[in-house]
Design a protein around this nucleic acid. Structure first.
Lengths: 346, 346
DNA sequence: CTCTGGCACTCCTTCTCCTTGAGTGCCAAA
DNA sequence: TTTGGCACTCAAGGAGAAGGAGTGCCAGAG
């Protein structure tokens, strides 16, 4: 029990996991000795498999079936065994090609990223849209829709456009609005939205604002406009890929997963986890801490703009995912997006 | 064969369709005489059913099963038999409540509409976002992202915000940009995007533009910004509802439908059909002219803003849909959205 | 001590066969 | 015109048997 995994154990675990990933069928000892380059007899393999099962890396659905990896098995595989291969030039080019097409705006680019992730990985692509407060202020504009309704449109450095309806108490003249706009665009340029907000708060408290009515209005308006009430948005592409997976042939289970996707909140939470860490993250099965997603795994990576991390992107699929090929895809996509966001607009 | 449907035939067809809608099971003669208020013996009902089958309104999956409606049956039911009931106050209130919450921006409102349609109908909600050219110009703004990249942001009368990246050949100074912005906002206010475009084209051809460099730039820039390359966008909510329908328990068929949804183009085409006509439209099965959707029906209605139709919305589900309850829901939602778009911003 | 072939055992999967029952069509009588 | 009766059809579902993949264990070879 306390015995650690031998080299041979690892080799066989690897072979089993890879075979299972390829076939979605429980792997037997015989199949292993035939297909893979394993130089042992089925009987020896069986001994090792029994060990692996005792250690919790494998289970068998029933006595006369082969074995399938447990979550612990996948986890060990991902953490210890798996050596991520470099992507070949051709695949990189294929990904890059998708973004070449035209001057894509940020949102379109992120959507494209999600779609490309899905089509190249054959699983479902996820891209988290940058949180407002992490982005950098570039420009704000107020459009008066009616007496009391003002539409605030602001653009971030990376070209993300956000807009928000603001209801105001007092009627603002076009001139006043223009003044406010100019003031904000001059003072706030280059600050992160978070900084803008703190700055507004401090300036509002200062004496100057107390006496200058226009200032006061400017601050009220802009602080209302910059409230980030979004809980994050995720772009999901390729939900139908899930329907291809044999493990989700149960309609009821499938339905719960699709519902979870539609609500998005669970996915936001999972993608958020990758915000701080560098490199590719893998979340396997119950590590998601969502019962509906307990048979799903995510492979995520953060992407960043000029100043620090903006969001995360990745792929979600069944636990039985070809990690070896998808991890580099996610990794490369994240760095590509970061690069595009960095160089695009300066 | 040429015989027209008798009154009794209609009553029985109605009963069969409603029973089938409720149960998703082929309807037999016995079940009919028991459940519904039909005062005939099973044998008589059988005779009528045989007639209805000969006329093409019903089919039986096999000899010893009951009968299910054909598309022709549904069509006749929708066109002739069905009397759409008024919605009761309570349900109207329930719908209206969804939009009360806060100053929703147009896109959010449309998304909310799609969601509400789905949750109230228990099927999948669809809302087509207004085509650019149908909307009315309100305000345009150019934000320079880099030397050659300009982000054009414009707002329509109804508060829809559109933005587009424009690549320019010549460097434009902030002052020039401001002038262009002011000019456009003053001259184009209140025109439809389509009109704006034709106006730009005519003015570009005029002498004035030939000599005034700034003008020329203004026109080049704005015509590039206002190109409507979108093929229409559809907001789909409640795809998972499809997974609840017994008729789509076949995974392969389900997959094709979800894929069709993801591509959206078929849905755009179908929703477009309802743009011209007033009132609720029903598209049944193969009338969709998309093989993947040949078991789906749509119930759609157009919504409009201040000036004419903006887009359509509706519900998609299996042929076996409770038309009687969903038609009023779609109808009411369309008129509600129209009302909200009309009154919201003036 | 490790590996391997052999063997009995398990139990899922698949096939066939049969029964069951819902529903039909038709006919003769009310 | 309607109804009850009756023979017929055919999908669905269950029981039983055969097949087969895979296992665990043991004894013997290296």
């Amino acid at each position: 029990m306390a015995a650690k995994l031998t080299d041979r154990g690892q080799t066989i675990l690897e072979a089993i996991i890879e075979e299972y990933i390829a076939t979605a069928q429980p792997v037997g000892s015989k199949a292993l000795t035939q297909n893979q380059g394993i130089k042992l007899s089925p009987a020896s393999v069986r001994n090792v498999m029994a060990e692996l099962e005792e250690l919790g890396y494998l289970v068998s659905p029933h006595t006369s079936a082969g074995r399938i990896p447990t979550e612990k098995g996948y986890r060990f595989y991902v953490d210890t065994i798996l050596r991520v291969s470099e992507m070949d030039r051709r695949q990189k080019d294929r990904i890059e090609l998708q973004y070449r097409q035209q001057g894509l705006q940020m949102t379109d680019m992120l959507r494209e990223a999600s779609r490309t992730l899905s089509s190249i990985s054959h699983y479902t692509g996820l891209v988290m849209v940058p949180r407002l407060k992490a982005t950098i202020f570039r420009h704000i504009e107020f459009v008066k829709l009616s007496q009391r309704l003002i539409l605030a449109v602001f653009v971030t450095q990376s070209g993300l456009v956000q807009n928000k309806l603001v209801e105001v108490d007092e009627d603002l003249s076009p001139r006043e609005l223009e003044k406010i706009t100019n003031y904000l665009n001059q003072t706030m340029n280059g600050l992160s939205i978070q900084d803008v907000r703190t700055r507004i708060i401090t300036e509002m408290a200062q004496e100057k604002a107390l006496y200058d009515q226009l200032m006061r209005r400017a601050f009220t308006l802009s602080s209302a406009a910059l409230v980030d009430e979004s809980n994050g948005d995720v772009i999901i592409e390729g939900t139908s890929r899930f329907l291809e997976q044999p493990e989700f042939s149960d309609l009821d289970c499938m339905k719960r997963i699709v519902q979870t996707f539609e609500q998005k909140s669970a996915l936001v939470e999972l993608l958020d986890r990758g915000l701080e860490s560098k490199g590719v993250q893998v979340i396997i099965g119950s590590e998601t801490e969502h019962t509906e997603l307990s048979d799903c795994s995510l492979i995520t990576a953060a992407y960043s703009g000029k100043r620090g991390t903006l969001g995360t992107l990745g792929v979600i699929g069944p636990n039985r995912m070809p990690y070896a090929t998808i991890i580099p895809i996610v990794d490369y996509t994240a760095s590509l997006i970061s690069r595009l966001l960095d160089t695009d607009n300066d």
